[in-house]
């Protein structure tokens, strides 16, 4: 197992293997999105209070879950990169950040669009909304910090520390609606109960898995580019570039 990981994590092997995996992530993403869209617009019903606005949830909640999920991946990859000094782990952390920032922004914007008609305001400084906004700032800080160094090794180390420290915000976002009085509602889905109609839940899950596959595909694509840039002086990269140029 350990040997296999080390073999896969070598830049050259990663580049070759990941190229083959990407289509297997893109295909489920497209399939799940199409079924998910059908389920969220046609199969799932309108809500008894929110009416049709409930459909915003099918983007908002999966995007918000992704914003947390990607940050956790980023922090774990940073930890692995720091402790075991695996180049690929740092690359995964680095290329995940913009994807995570995009999902965070999507969650904030869709939440705002839902909040105006339902709550009566675009924005409120309640615990959930504020901590999610801090998550966006953490992503942006990570990206800027990484870009502030010329040497990728120094950049990896410094931004890894930031990613790990920022991890403390994740439980705060998750439990914010329980720890404090907030405008944002509590979780509808927990391990013990699901307080939503089953078709709503299915639509939510379909989109949520679609997003996971999309993230996987995006990370591999971006990581391949990053590997090429970082290994540009090595022989195998030159062979690929020359080969492509022929």
């Amino acid at each position: 197992m350990w040997k296999w990981i080390q073999a896969f994590a070598s830049p050259r092997n990663f580049y070759q293997t990941s190229g083959k995996i990407i289509p297997w992530l893109m295909a489920p993403f497209i399939a799940l999105s199409l079924i998910g869209l059908y389920w969220s617009f046609v199969v799932s019903p309108a809500d008894y209070q929110q009416g049709e606005s409930v459909r915003i949830m099918y983007v908002h909640v999966p995007a918000a879950w992704m914003s947390l999920f990607i940050y956790i991946v980023m922090a774990i990859a940073s930890g692995i990169g720091l402790i075991w000094q695996i180049k690929l782990a740092h690359i995964v952390a680095k290329v995940s950040a913009p994807v995570g920032a995009a999902f965070t922004l999507l969650a904030l914007v869709t939440g705002s669009v839902w909040g105006k008609p339902m709550w009566g305001t675009w924005w409120a400084w309640d615990a959930r909304l504020t901590s999610e906004l801090i998550l966006l700032f953490l992503y942006l800080a990570y990206i800027s910090l990484h870009n502030a160094f010329d040497n990728p090794k120094t950049a990896d180390k410094a931004s890894s520390v930031l990613a790990i420290v920022g991890l403390v915000n994740i439980p705060i976002i998750y439990y914010s609606v329980e720890w404090w009085n907030s405008l944002h509602q509590g979780s509808s889905i927990s391990t013990t109960k699901i307080s939503m109609q089953i078709d709503m839940f299915i639509a939510l899950m379909l989109i949520s898995f679609a997003f996971k596959f999309l993230y996987g595909a995006l990370v591999l694509m971006r990581a391949r580019d990053e590997v090429l840039v970082r290994e540009q002086n090595s022989r195998w990269v030159r062979e690929i570039i020359v080969g492509v140029g022929k």
């Binding site: 019903p45 309108a46 809500d47 008894y48 209070q49 929110q50 409930v54 949830m57 339902m118 709550w119 009566g120 305001t121 409120a124 405008l183 509602q185 509590g186 979780s187 509808s188 307080s195 939503m196 109609q197 709503m200």
Partner: peptide, 15 residues
């Protein structure tokens, strides 16, 4: 200012 709070229950009108 008056804001409406929504709870975590989502269901169709019939239910």
């Amino acid at each position: 200012e008056v804001l409406a709070k929504h709870d975590e229950n989502y269901m169709p009108p019939e239910v």
